Simulated scan of single mutants.
Amino acid sequence: MKRIAVLKKIRSAAKAADVEFQQFELTGHTAVRVGRTTRTIGRHHEIDDLTARKFFDQFAEELGGKGWRR
Results as ranks from 00 to 15, higher is better:
Ile4Phe: 11
Thr51Asp: 10
Asp49Thr: 11
Thr40Ala: 09
Ala16Asn: 09
Leu7His: 03
Gly65Gln: 07
Val6His: 01
Thr51Val: 13
Leu7Thr: 04
Arg43Glu: 10
Phe59Cys: 03
Val34Lys: 08
Ile10Ala: 04
Ile41Pro: 00
Arg53Lys: 12
Arg39Thr: 09
Asp49Arg: 10
Lys15Glu: 15
Gly67Lys: 02
Ala14Lys: 03
Lys8Val: 08
Leu26Gln: 15
Met1Cys: 08
Lys9Ile: 06
Asp57Gln: 10
Asp48Asn: 12
Asp18Val: 01
Gly65Tyr: 05
Leu26Lys: 15
Lys54Cys: 12
His44Met: 00
Gly42Val: 13
Phe55Trp: 04
Phe24Val: 06
Thr30Leu: 10
Gln22Leu: 10
Glu20Ile: 00
Arg43Leu: 10
Gly65Cys: 09
Arg33Thr: 05
Arg11Cys: 04
Lys15Gly: 14
Arg33Glu: 01
Phe24Ile: 07
Lys9His: 14
Arg39Val: 10
Ala52Thr: 13
Lys54Leu: 11
Met1Val: 11
Glu25Cys: 06
Lys54Asp: 15
Lys8Trp: 05
Phe55Met: 06
Thr38Cys: 11
Thr38Met: 13
Phe56Lys: 05
Thr30Pro: 00
Gly67Asn: 04
Ala5Pro: 03
Arg33Gln: 08
Lys8His: 13
Leu26His: 14
Ala17Lys: 10
Met1Gly: 12
Val32Arg: 06
His29Cys: 09
Arg36Lys: 14
Glu62Leu: 02
Thr37Lys: 13
Asp49Glu: 14
Lys54Arg: 15
Glu46Pro: 01
Lys9Ser: 13
Thr51Glu: 11
Leu7Asn: 06
Leu26Asn: 15
Thr30Phe: 04
Lys2Tyr: 06
Gln58Leu: 11
Glu46Tyr: 03
Glu46Arg: 09
Phe55Gln: 03
Arg36Ile: 04
Gly64Cys: 00
Arg39Trp: 01
Thr38Ser: 08
Ala52Gly: 08
Ile10Gly: 03
His45Asn: 15
Ala17Val: 06
Asp57Glu: 12
Arg11Asp: 04
Ser12Phe: 06
Ala14Tyr: 03
Lys66Gln: 12
Ala16Glu: 08
Gln23Thr: 05
Arg11Thr: 04
Lys15Cys: 07
Phe24Gln: 11
Lys15Met: 13
Thr38Lys: 12
Ile47Leu: 12
Asp18Arg: 08
Leu7Glu: 03
Leu63Gln: 01
Val19Gln: 05
Leu50Trp: 00
Ser12Gln: 14
Ala14Cys: 07
Arg69Leu: 02
Gly28Pro: 00
Trp68His: 04
Phe55Tyr: 09
Glu61Pro: 00
His45Tyr: 07
Thr30Met: 10
Thr38Arg: 10
Arg43Lys: 15
Gly35Leu: 06
Phe56Cys: 01
Asp48Val: 09
Ala13Gln: 06
Lys66Pro: 04
Arg43Val: 09
Thr37Phe: 07
Gln23Leu: 11
Gln58Ile: 00
Arg36His: 08
Phe56Thr: 01
